[in-house]
Simulated assay, not measured.
Amino acid sequence: MDQPPRVTATDAALDLIARLSREHGHILFHQSGGCCDGSAPMCYPQGDFLVGDNDVKLGEIGGAPFYIGQAQFDYWKHTQLIIDVVPGQGGMFSLDNGTGSRFLTRSRLFSEAELAALAR
């Protein structure tokens, strides 16, 4: 079995990513660990968010790299993150703010076979 992606996106999320990329150029995501904007995936122009040594790159969605903090990754390493879009207000500093839509993280547990593939 090939390694399953650690992060995927719905068609609605991919549409919003394409729109934000057209408006802002190259973008990236960072999965928030709580605090002010809950656990929303935050979207930034590349260069406006400094990826730290403790950030883990989960993959890419819509051509945008997706990162998560190491502590959050350790907690969620058994799950696949599924980035979706729902009506609402995005995070204060996230590019989805003001669009009438916001990114939302859904998740599902990896199967035993997927976890074995990820361990290789």
Rank of each mutant, 00 (worst) to 15 (best):
L16C: 08
T10W: 06
L28N: 10
A40G: 11
C43D: 02
G52P: 00
D53W: 01
G91Q: 04
P45A: 09
F93N: 10
V51Q: 05
L109M: 13
A13L: 07
L104I: 12
D37H: 02
P65D: 14
Q89D: 13
S32H: 11
P5W: 03
D55N: 11
F66H: 11
F66M: 01
S107D: 10
V7C: 00
F73A: 10
F93Q: 12
A9I: 05
T10H: 06
D74R: 07
A18I: 05
L118G: 08
F103E: 03
Q70G: 08
F110I: 11
L95C: 07
G33Q: 06
R102S: 11
A64G: 00
V7N: 02
M1Y: 11
H30I: 14
L104Y: 12
P45Y: 00
P65K: 01
A117I: 03
P87H: 09
D11F: 00
G100F: 04
P87V: 10
C35S: 15
R19L: 13
Q72A: 15
S101V: 07
R120Q: 13
Y75A: 13
L58Y: 04
N97C: 08
E114S: 05
G52N: 11
A64S: 09
A116T: 09
A9E: 01
Y75T: 14
D48W: 03
F73G: 03
G25C: 11
M92P: 00
G34S: 08
Y75I: 12
Q70F: 10
D37Q: 07
E60N: 08
D15R: 14
I61T: 10
A116H: 01
P45T: 09
K77H: 14
L50A: 15
G100R: 02
L58V: 04
